[in-house]
């Protein structure tokens, strides 16, 4: 489980921009993609510091 959580950053880096690309407006879509990736990366810190140590 912890390995999957660690790997989640790769999934996010691929899936977040692909999902954001479905936005009808390209500029808005790109902003969402970049912001989404940045937010997930910040969330990853939380995963690493709080969740993964508990899951083991």
């Amino acid at each position: 489980m912890s390995k999957l959580l660690l790997l989640s950053i790769c999934f996010a880096l691929v899936s977040v921009p692909l999902m954001a690309s479905r936005d009808a407006h390209p500029v808005r879509g790109l902003k969402r993609a970049l912001l989404g990736v940045l937010l997930f990366n910040l969330f990853y810190v939380f995963l690493l510091r709080v969740v993964i140590p508990r899951v083991g």
Binding site: L13, P17, M19, A20, S21
Partner: peptide, 16 residues
């Protein structure tokens, strides 16, 4: 994020 931003941008364009 800055170093790998181009991957996100490229995948965004790939999706479009």
């Amino acid at each position: 994020t800055a170093v790998f931003a181009y991957l996100a941008v490229a995948l965004f364009f790939l999706g479009r």
